[in-house]
Simulated assay, not measured.
Amino acid sequence: MKRHWHAAASAFAALFTVSATAALFTVSATAATELDLKREDGSQITMYLERSQKEAKADLLVLIQGSDCNSVAHNTLINQKFSEVLPGADVLTIEKYGITSHLPWDRSGEREDCPAAYLQNDSLAQRTSDYLKVLDQLAERATYENIVLLGGSEGAVIANIIAARADYVSASVALNGGGRFFKDDVLASMKNSGMPEHAYEQAKQGFNQFAAQVLEGKPFPVSMSLHGYRWWHSVLSADQLEILGDVGTPTLIVQGTADKNVDVAATGEMISELRHKGATNITYLAYEGMGHHFQRDDNTSALPNLIADIQSWLNAALSN
């Protein structure tokens, strides 16, 4: 049963998990002394800011990784690919609670060296709080023309939450973030795994019981799919329809139609409901044949086309 839960939890897991080594972005000495990078509990927020070479006012591109237990500093898909969607921009990434660049890259999803501090503290709320703390300061101290968010999987949800809360965000992009409720994404992931129907029904029953315990009971020790209680409670409580309803800035939502980690149909239904409610700021792109990790059915990469489409949308959104 735990094995099935782990596979299902990948619905929100590392969207940005392609290869291992990337250049580490660093914060300039001046920026480091200006910013307060301490959380309320005294722990350190680790951020990386790549400065552009432009002398004039720059834009800021904020890249938000998925939910894997890995350092964003070693993620080449983020640092070398998606960093190009806004040419000439400064690029900001932030590590999750308890993770630094000292953590080796591991794509197995079953690592034993995931930091205890991460397992105990990571959640949508914690990650959002870290981004807002850093962005609030950067927005106050810097002269950015535009601040653009881009996140994938869990990072897509966090991008949406930040866009709903921060009035300085110019536009945001959410990639393969799934539908309204994470629980539906988990069950869809189970269904798509190819397990026999009777096994699916057993797994579904077990996960429903687990979800009810998380949402309705008192906090309890849990380490499921490299996530603790706070994470599970936060993702099972999140309502993306409600979150996106509070976003007023241009938002691009991209969902691969061959994504087996989420409920693709539920994503389309959520978009329809948002439009019914009068949301005109959201552009929805259902990417035909693209899976959760940007691969097509024939295992070729959809990334070049996807990045070009994001660039085209951003050019239009930021020029209005």
Score class of each variant (00 low, 15 high):
F25T: 00
F25L: 09
T26F: 00
T26R: 14
T26S: 11
T26P: 04
T26N: 10
T26K: 13
T26M: 03
V27T: 14
V27M: 15
S28H: 05
S28C: 08
S28G: 15
A29I: 04
A29E: 14
A29N: 13
T30Q: 10
T30F: 03
A31K: 08
A31H: 03
A31P: 00
A31W: 06
A31G: 03
A32Y: 07
T33V: 08
T33C: 10
T33K: 11
T33I: 07
T33S: 15
E34W: 02
E34Q: 12
L35C: 04
L35N: 01
D36S: 07
D36E: 09
D36N: 15
D36L: 06
D36F: 01
L37K: 04
L37F: 03
L37S: 08
L37D: 08
L37N: 10
L37M: 14
K38V: 02
K38W: 00
K38R: 12
R39T: 10
E40F: 07
E40M: 10
E40N: 11
G42I: 01
S43D: 13
S43P: 05
S43N: 12
Q44R: 14
Q44S: 11
Q44H: 09
I45W: 04
I45R: 05
I45F: 03
I45D: 04
T46P: 00
M47G: 02
M47Y: 04
M47I: 15
M47Q: 03
Y48V: 01
Y48E: 07
Y48K: 10
Y48M: 13
Y48G: 13
L49M: 09
L49Y: 06
L49Q: 06
L49S: 03
L49N: 05
L49C: 07
L49W: 07
E50S: 14
R51T: 10
R51C: 00
R51I: 02
R51V: 02
R51S: 08
S52H: 13
Q53H: 06
Q53M: 06
K54Y: 04
K54V: 04
K54M: 12
K54P: 00
K54R: 15
E55Q: 12
E55G: 13
E55D: 15
E55W: 05
E55K: 10
A56K: 14
A56I: 05
A56N: 11
A56D: 11
K57E: 14
K57I: 07
K57D: 10
A58L: 05
A58Y: 01
A58R: 15
A58S: 13
D59G: 06
D59L: 06
D59E: 12
L60A: 07
L60G: 02
L60N: 04
L60C: 08
V62A: 04
V62W: 01
V62H: 01
L63W: 01
L63Y: 05
L63D: 02
I64L: 15
Q65A: 09
G66W: 02
G66T: 09
G66C: 04
S67C: 08
S67K: 06
S67G: 15
D68A: 15
D68T: 15
D68Y: 13
